[in-house]
């Protein structure tokens, strides 16, 4: 379980968030959605340790950690593969930086390559394969972190429709087949509704959770469900209301 309690970050005497609490239970897909500029990115920076928190505590599986960089893997909308390394070398990066057994890591990576349909492409450079294959390689790298918690920073927002759909399926696979807990931040309502188990609606600065919605059903969901469409309308109205309140 991930527990964030009393997290506070202040910039220029203006609190970005103050006393922020969040609990994500194991093997859930938690999505934090809020309007642009509400403080999501700062929250993510504090979680990953890029920026220190001013107050508060982070706990993973009951143990306090300075930041989630120590316990979480990371996936981004870009595949973040290094163009100078082959797909296999890219997937082995967590083992190389983490000082693990490279031989063992290599065997595991090759197994994952086979499972995700990347066999035969191990020595290809990222630009030599399709966008979908690069995303699958990024997924292998994420799995090679050997960490149960995965942080997702707007993973789908700038992708074309086909790659987006393929990555949605991969994220669901991460949760269902590889038993991972996922925390995603986004400003994209569609993305949130398609993937979340627990959707946290954020208010504008100082950022706080204004609502929590628990979603059910097989994922990735489809928008032919009227209930989902109605929910999308409600969320959009709430976000819009927040933005207008700030502008007014």
């Amino acid at each position: 379980m991930l527990s964030v309690s009393g997290l506070t970050k202040v910039f220029d005497q203006q609190p970005v968030f103050s006393g922020f609490d969040l609990t994500v239970t194991r093997n859930r897909f938690a999505v934090l959605i809020g309007p642009s500029g509400c403080g999501k990115s700062t929250f993510f920076d504090v979680l990953t340790g890029v920026t220190p928190a001013d107050a508060g505590a982070l706990r993973w599986q009951g143990e306090e950690v300075c930041h989630l960089g120590e316990v979480a893997a990371y996936m981004h909308q870009k595949d973040l593969l290094l163009p100078w390394f082959s797909l296999l070398e890219n997937s082995l990066l967590p083992a190389r930086t983490g000082g693990g057994d490279l031989h063992q890591a290599r065997s595991r990576a090759l197994q994952l390559f086979s499972r995700l349909g990347l066999s035969g492409y191990e020595q290809h450079l990222p630009h030599q394969v399709s966008g979908g294959m690069r995303q699958r390689c990024a997924l292998v790298r994420t799995l090679m972190f050997n960490r149960d918690l995965i942080l997702l920073d707007e993973p789908l927002s700038a992708l074309d429709a086909i790659t987006r759909k393929s990555l949605q399926s991969l994220l669901v696979l991460l949760q269902s087949e590889f038993d991972r807990t996922l925390v995603m931040i986004t400003h994209d309502v569609d993305e949130a509704l398609l993937l979340a188990d627990d959707l946290y609606l954020l208010s504008v600065k100082p950022m706080a959770i204004r609502d929590k919605i628990v979603l059910h059903g097989d994922k990735p969901r489809r928008f032919d469900n009227p209930e989902l469409l109605a929910m999308k309308e409600t969320i959009l109205q709430q976000l819009q209301g927040d933005i207008e309140h700030v502008a007014g």
Binding site: V50, G69, E70, H76, K78, L93, T97, G98
Partner: peptide
């Protein structure tokens, strides 16, 4: 890019390791 730095940070890479594998190339 910032995203790559975050990735290396989360991979637990030290400065010189990041220099060798990321910054230098």
């Amino acid at each position: 890019d910032r995203e790559y730095r975050v990735l290396f940070r989360l991979m637990g890479a030290g400065f010189w390791q990041t220099m060798r594998l990321l910054y230098w190339p």
